[in-house]
């Protein structure tokens, strides 16, 4: 899989996670990657990744305090490719019901809701992608590929066609969404071995 480093990846650090795996995966793929908490870096980014593990409300508070919410939204609205990962996917939506109602970044219309009763939560482990439509982010990724999930909530878009791939865990939920220059995965591509690498490489080429 030859890579053509064409642009730098900027990973948004809002001080809740270890971002080393994500950064190193991009580097192994041959891209320049950096981690920043500085809104000025976000506003100058060529490609943005919004990662995340943890609680939705805490993450939004951190993003707001660091002045990063506005920067991410402005940069994405200006057309910069943006990839949300795990909680970073959920943050792109309008709001979440995790521990009360919290406002999100509002880049994608929809709400974040809890996984249904009757399945073990968190949904943790390797589960499959069911392809719903073609998209360059999943180019070269076979249907039914396994990727690594850790989450208790999922994003329910207003427009179901936002889903590029879905996963079945008590409910069919969007595992990958995309709209224009904004993409997101509910799973962790940086922990999903070769399938995940392919997805991150595809994103870096957008």
């Amino acid at each position: 899989m030859p890579s053509q480093p064409s642009s730098a990846i900027t990973i948004v650090d809002y001080k809740m996670n270890n971002l080393r795996s994500l950064e190193n995966t991009f580097r192994r793929l041959g891209y320049t990657a950096s981690v920043t908490s500085d809104a000025a870096d976000v506003l100058a980014a060529e490609k943005l990744v919004l990662p995340g593990v943890g609680a939705f409300g805490d993450a939004m508070a951190h993003l707001d305090d660091l002045g990063l919410s506005e920067a991410v939204v402005d940069r994405a609205r200006a057309g910069t490719p943006l990839l949300g990962v795990c909680l970073g996917m959920q943050l792109l939506f309008d709001d979440s019901e995790e521990f009360g109602r919290h406002r999100g970044l509002g880049l994608l219309p929809g709400s974040v809701v809890k996984l249904p009763a009757g399945v073990h939560v968190p949904h943790m482990g390797w589960n499959q992608l069911h392809m719903r439509r073609e998209d360059p982010l999943l180019e070269g990724v076979r249907g039914e590929s396994f990727v690594y999930f850790v989450h208790s909530y999922f994003a329910a878009p207003e427009d179901p066609h936002l889903a590029i791939a879905e996963t079945d865990y008590g409910v069919d939920f969007p595992a990958v969404v995309g709209s224009g220059n904004v993409w997101a995965t509910q799973f962790h591509p940086e922990k999903s071995q070769h399938v995940g690498e392919r997805i991150l490489d595809n994103f870096a080429r957008q």
Binding site: H188, K191, E197
Partner: peptide, 11 residues
């Protein structure tokens, strides 16, 4: 742990 995290992309 840091060296493992740098090179291995499974949990």
């Amino acid at each position: 742990v840091g060296r493992v995290a740098d090179s291995i992309n499974i949990p």
